[in-house]
Simulated assay, not measured.
Amino acid sequence: MAYNEYLVDRVSLFFREKGIHFNPKKMFGGFVFMVDDKMCVGVMKDQIMARINPDIYEASLEKEGCRSMDFTKKSMKGFVFLSDEAIDLDKDLNYWLQLALDFNPLAKASKKRKSSKN
């Protein structure tokens, strides 16, 4: 299993309860929740990936269970991985998911790749 389906269900439930429209996408070997065509939250193996405001990134890294997202061997400011210690309780998971949702309107969307049809 490339991603924890229970975590996907927990994130899906949070978004549905908030009335947030999201597009699920399998990418990076995990499951990503796209909100307004922007990567918002993902589930990678047994961790949550959250895209948060870069202004609170450094302070967030000091919280238990939060670390920089570095699967490309380089940390990406504003993207964090959250382990069980950070998201075990629903209130803790909801805190991080809300941070990601709060930043989403400010986040820049990825440039769409052009099709290379000849």
Rank of each mutant, 00 (worst) to 15 (best):
K25E: 15
I52M: 10
S60A: 13
E85W: 01
E5P: 01
V43D: 02
L61N: 11
M76H: 13
D55E: 15
E17D: 10
S75W: 05
D84V: 12
R51Q: 13
K117I: 12
K111I: 12
Q98L: 09
D37G: 10
V32M: 08
G42R: 00
K73F: 11
V11T: 04
P24M: 02
A59V: 12
F15D: 01
D88A: 11
L101C: 07
K45V: 08
A86N: 05
I87M: 03
F103A: 05
I20N: 01
E5F: 03
M69S: 13
F14V: 03
Q47V: 05
K26C: 08
G42C: 02
V8E: 04
D102T: 08
S60Y: 02
M76E: 12
F79V: 08
S116K: 15
K74I: 14
F22G: 05
N23D: 15
F81A: 02
F15G: 04
S12I: 00
I48Y: 01
K45R: 12
D102P: 05
F28N: 06
S68Y: 06
D88I: 03
M39R: 03
S115V: 13
G29A: 08
P105A: 09
A100D: 02
K74A: 14
Y95F: 15
Y3W: 07
V8Y: 01
N118V: 10
G30V: 03
F14Y: 14
M69C: 14
F31H: 02
S60T: 06
G65T: 06
C66P: 02
V41L: 11
K38N: 06
K38P: 04
G65Y: 06
K25G: 05
L61K: 12
L89C: 09
K25F: 03
W96C: 00
D102Q: 11
P54D: 09
F15M: 11
S115C: 14
D46Q: 14
D70V: 06
C40P: 04
D9P: 00
T72V: 13
K114C: 04
M1L: 09
S110R: 12
D70G: 07
D88F: 11
M27Y: 03
S110K: 14
R67S: 15
P105G: 07
R16M: 08
S83L: 07
T72C: 14
K77D: 08
A2R: 10
Q98F: 01
A109W: 02
L101W: 05
V43L: 03
K114N: 09
G30Q: 03
S116E: 10
L13H: 07
Q98V: 00
M27T: 10
S68T: 09
S115Y: 12
A2K: 12
L101M: 12
Y57W: 15
S83H: 08
C40R: 01
S68Q: 15
D55G: 06
G42D: 00
F15K: 02
F103Q: 08
N118W: 09
A86R: 01
F33H: 00
K111G: 09
I87K: 02
T72L: 11
F15L: 12
V8A: 01
D55F: 11
L106S: 13
F22E: 04
F71T: 09
L7G: 00
F28C: 02
L61A: 09
N4K: 05
M76P: 00
S12F: 00
F22M: 05
K18D: 10
